[in-house]
């Protein structure tokens, strides 16, 4: 069976002067996958994600995301991806519903589409009772769930999650992953970074970046076997410590 690729990256490099933040990386992400993008601080993850989401252009190499070239079709690309990070979040001084309307509007959804989406979303999140609550009055874990739902409100082909569960309690963290699984069932591909190694284990495939390069990539089982480890935590430490 031929797998459909959603991200295809070839020899991607980003250099700041002599320093190569991302050095000649090539990989693919397939449709419907949960792809874990791991690496130590400063390994180049953030730079790579910025290139994949069309925020910065690459120094050399090329790639496509959701079928659009990451350097030449950045506007088209941005319409077809979702993005959420711990920092990018919701407007604290707007209510839940107002945030949904705002982001729906940005992505060009009609009034009716927004209402349909919002109804479905509030249902899934069991948050109907707080739809008119200011975001600033909602607990962090819930906010992250809302932020994720808002990030996929326009049915993107792929959603990028940059440390989405940082600091969230263990139960809410798992509920968050339930949402990710649901999104995958809806046909959305998920590209996620995390510092929680148990979350890395939820991914279908995992890549490990070290010093700007992709050091290892494969399924959990493949990595565990290759590095003779029992958990992803061990793999990470073995790779990152060299």
């Amino acid at each position: 069976m031929e797998k459909e690729t959603v991200i295809e990256v070839k020899n991607l490099t980003k250099a700041y002067g002599a320093f190569k933040a991302v050095n000649d990386i090539s990989f693919e992400v397939y449709k419907g996958e949960i792809f874990g993008f791991l690496g130590a601080n400063g390994a180049g993850k953030t730079t790579a994600i910025k290139m994949l989401t069309g925020i910065i252009t690459s120094t050399s190499g090329d790639g496509s995301v959701a079928g659009y070239n990451i350097n030449k079709q950045r506007d088209k690309l941005k319409e077809n991806i979702g993005y959420m990070s711990q920092k990018f979040s919701l407007y604290e001084d707007l209510t839940l519903m107002e945030n949904v309307e705002f982001y729906g509007g940005i992505y060009g959804l009609s009034k009716k589409q927004i209402i349909d989406k919002a109804t479905l979303m509030l249902d899934r999140l069991h948050m109907n009772h707080i739809k008119d609550t200011l975001i600033s009055d909602i607990p962090l874990g819930w906010k992250q769930k809302i932020a994720f739902s808002v990030a996929i409100i326009h049915d993107p082909k792929i959603v990028f999650l940059d440390e989405p569960t940082s600091g969230v309690d263990p139960i809410t963290r798992r509920q968050f992953w339930d949402l990710i699984y649901q999104a995958v069932e809806d046909g959305i591909t998920v590209f996620v970074t995390t510092h929680y190694m148990d979350e890395a284990e939820y991914c279908d495939r995992i890549s490990m970046m070290v010093d700007g390069e992709i050091y290892a990539i494969g399924s959990l089982q493949y990595l565990l076997n290759k590095y003779d480890s029992k958990t992803m935590d061990e793999v990470f430490i073995k790779i990152a410590r060299g």
Partner: peptide, 10 residues
């Protein structure tokens, strides 16, 4: 240890 990778955390 918030925002720090697992190795630095360890």
């Amino acid at each position: 240890t918030t925002g720090v990778d697992p190795v630095s955390r360890k």
